[in-house]
Structure formats: C-alpha cells, structure tokens
Amino acid sequence: MIDVVDLSKSFGKLQVLRSITETIKDGEKVAIIGPSGSGKSTFLRCLNCLEDPTSGSIFFEGKDLADLRVDINLSRRHIGMVFQQFNLFNNKTVMGNITLAPVLVAKSERRKAMRHNTFAAVTNLFSKKKKEKLPVKSKKAIKAEAEENAMRLLERIGLADKAASYPSTLSGGQKQRIAIVRALAMNPKVMLFDEPTSALDPEMVGEVLELIKQVADEGMTMVIVTHEMGFAREVADRILFMDNGIILEQGTPEDIFTNPKQPRLKEFLSKVL
C-alpha cells in the first residue's frame, strides 16, 4: 500500500528522520511508538507529504508522493488523516465539515465530465471512433448524496443530532470522532492517526479508541502514532519503535512488549508501562 524508501527529513540543521525504509501492506495496522522527539509524528506526516521529505521516496498506488510533479491533492483524497488537535473546520457545521471535501471532489469530477462531453460531442462529428458520454450528476444530487452519506456516518457514531452544530459546541471526544468520520467520508484506502487521543480528557479516550478499533476491524489499512500502549498492543499487527530518527526495532505486539531486544526499547517500556 505504502512503500517508503530511504526517507530523510531535516528541519534546518536538525535531522529528524534518518533514511527510513519501510513498507505498509494492504490491510495492515501499524502502530508507531517511541519517546517524544523521536520523529514518529514527522514520519507519519511525511506519508501524505504534509511535511515535504528532504530526500527519499514514498510510493502510494504506484506514484512517488515525494515527487513534486505528482498531484499530491489527488493522492491525499485516498489517505485519511486524523490529527491530535482534531482540526475540525471552525467555520463549518459538523455536516459541513464532513461534506466539504466530498462535495468539492464530486463537483470537480462533474466539471471534468462536462468538459469531456463537450469535447466528445465535437470530435464525434468528425471521427468514426465515437467517444462515450460520461454521466453528469446535478449539483443538487451531489450535495444530497454527500449529506446522506454523512448522516449515515454520524448515525453510526451516535451524533446525528449534532449535524447542524458548530465544532465550538462539542466535547473533545465528539470532535475527534467527527474528525475520524470526516476522513472516512472520502472512502480512504489508508488512514493515518497522529496521536488521536493525546489531547483528550481521560474519560473521552475510550469512545475514540472504540471507534478506531471498529474502523480497524473493517479491514482499513492504518498507521497510528500513539502513546496508548495497551491500545497499540490490541489493535496493531505490527509495532514500530522509533528513536532518534530511525526505526530501532519492530515486530508483533507480542515481540515488542514481552520480548524487547534493544536496551533503549526496554528502558522506554519500563517507563511507560
């Protein structure tokens, strides 16, 4: 699904990632743990180029996202991202948050289809090879479809009654669950979670983790940066331990938590467990 090859990232003189090579397979759930400043968030943010890699490649669906000629916006539609600070759009209602991107994407598809049809109508006059017309949805249908889909997702997380609310009126847990649903509304192929529970009150952590677990059980490919060791152990197929810009050790949760090899990992686990 995602192939990271020789990825390095520096902020000025500070090298945060040192030549990381890693593959995330289809359907795999990968948790990344490690001390603060180890580069785990930066690594995650490089996967959808929110941070531009200094060198190296990130292959997603056969395209190198690190290549500036690749249209990153097209690829990002298939990579959902959930932030530590939720980052719901404050100027939009919950419904607006979820439907914004799907509606804009559908509208741009619509424009493309209409361009194609006009072009085809002209060329069909002269050429024997007839081009097929593409279906064009009305703007109303696009909006209705997106809203219907959003409503279904909101019902699933039990927040359908909040559809018309603004983010400022919601609790942290509600915000984060809506942020997850906003990412899901794009039907992503992979989801990236950047410490999704670190900014939550303790009593709201459970509901968010529960939702992430549900999404995981549906077979979504996931990369999760987390400090919740119990959660990582339960959900992940594979755990990466990062320290000082490299992946120091990796393995199944079993290996990492009961049989750590690196002294640095042992020390880390003794502090957090």
Binding site: L50, N73, R76, G80, N87
Partner: peptide
C-alpha cells in the same frame, strides 16, 4: 491546523 486539515483531505 485548519489549513493542514483542509490540505489533508485533498483540497488545493
């Protein structure tokens, strides 16, 4: 984070 979130869902 607002701009980041918008970019992350694929908006230009």
């Amino acid at each position: 984070g607002q701009l980041e979130a918008a970019r992350a869902v694929g908006l230009s």
